[in-house]
Computed example of a mutant assay.
Amino acid sequence: MTAGGGDAGPAAARAARALRTHAPELADLPLRELGRGLDNTAFAAGELVLRVADGHDVQREAGLLGVLAPRLPLAVPVPVFADADAGVLGHRLLPGRSLLGRTPAPGTAAVLGRFLRDLHATDPDTVRGFVDEDDADPAEWLADLDGPAELLRVVRSSVPRPSALRVVAHADLGAEHLLADGTGLTGVIDWSDCAVTDPALDFARLHRDFGPAFLAEALQAYGGLPGAGPRIEFFARCAALEDLGYGLRTGRAEYAAAARRSLAWLFPA
């Protein structure tokens, strides 16, 4: 599909409309789908990425990225435009490929630990206009959780107490949102879930996707997070079951396969 015509679904149509409005010089380029998730579908037109959002304000996300980009040691998307009517955020294409289903390069965990240390040190007042505060109450994560009965029993029997800690967190820092080339990380994408919330959320998906040794290395580089272990494990287990369900429901085999791999360390016999 080119930006000027054809039909590849409502998301592609919205991306094409935004492209014609904000970057008409690229309107004749084909739209290439980069990926789909629960809340976004991403397309590329040349070196421009068009992220079509469901249910969140792309202008707020663009403002957030403008605040965070100069503060962080890894690249984040640089907004070119934010079309509120179409729900499309346009940003420059970052190098690298998603780490979903891939083995990270040595040292990646330490790089992420330092990245999270800088992100979590951000004064929440600098982003109050762009993100919400999330209580991250573990009990609330059980409401719509589904999966194998024996695994649900484990999760429901190990609900930790909520934490009063609050930081600026990515809050969806899974492998699919980490870009890497052959030598290491090149960027962190999809900041639509960013919130002032429990820092354990940012370590939970690293634990889910890369295992306990990776988590330990990241926490060491971060400087430690005392008392967070039960919350990290709980949120990681919930996130694994969510991804397993998402992969099976949508036919996204890469999500289901990654979730199944993580069950070995998240639910040891």
Rank of each mutant, 00 (worst) to 15 (best):
G113N: 07
C194F: 07
P106C: 05
H170F: 01
A239K: 13
L74V: 14
T250Y: 09
E133K: 04
V80G: 06
R249D: 09
F130C: 12
A110W: 01
G113V: 10
P106E: 09
A216D: 10
G184P: 06
P30S: 11
G5R: 13
Y246G: 08
G245S: 04
A257R: 13
G184V: 03
S262M: 01
R114H: 13
A169S: 12
F210Y: 07
G224I: 14
V76R: 05
F235W: 00
V67Y: 01
D190R: 04
A259E: 01
A256Y: 08
L89I: 01
L165G: 01
A139Y: 11
A200H: 03
D137L: 10
A228Y: 00
V78R: 15
C238L: 11
G66V: 03
W141S: 08
A240T: 02
A204F: 08
S98G: 11
S163T: 14
A69Q: 05
D190V: 03
A221L: 05
E25I: 06
G66R: 11
P212Q: 08
P95F: 12
P24L: 04
V188R: 05
C194I: 07
G9M: 02
V155S: 04
D54H: 07
L93F: 10
G184R: 05
G35Y: 12
R60T: 07
D118Y: 00
P226N: 12
P104R: 05
L74N: 07
G251A: 10
P73E: 13
W191L: 08
D172F: 14
V58S: 07
M1V: 14
L178Y: 09
E133C: 09
H22T: 01
V131G: 15
F267P: 05
A8W: 00
G223E: 12
T103N: 07
E33N: 05
R71G: 11
V111D: 03
A8K: 03
T108Q: 04
L173K: 08
G245H: 08
F214K: 04
F267M: 06
D7H: 12
L151C: 07
L173M: 06
R208M: 14
T186R: 11
L100W: 06
P162G: 09
D54G: 13
D39V: 06
R208L: 13
A218T: 11
H207P: 00
F235V: 02
G187A: 10
L152Y: 09
G90M: 13
V78L: 03
T126L: 15
R260V: 14
G113L: 05
F210T: 14
L100V: 11
A3Y: 08
H207D: 06
A110D: 02
G35K: 04
E176A: 03
T41A: 06
A218N: 12
V131Q: 09
V154S: 12
L65V: 11
A12D: 11
L206Y: 00
L119R: 00
F43P: 10
E176H: 13
P70G: 13
R51K: 15
P230K: 05
G107K: 02
V188A: 13
D209K: 10
T21R: 14
P148M: 05
R252N: 09
Q220V: 02
D202F: 08
F115C: 03
A18T: 04
A264V: 13
A110S: 03
A62S: 07
T21Y: 03
R166G: 09
E150W: 06
D144C: 10
A258C: 15
A109V: 01
V67I: 13
G63S: 02
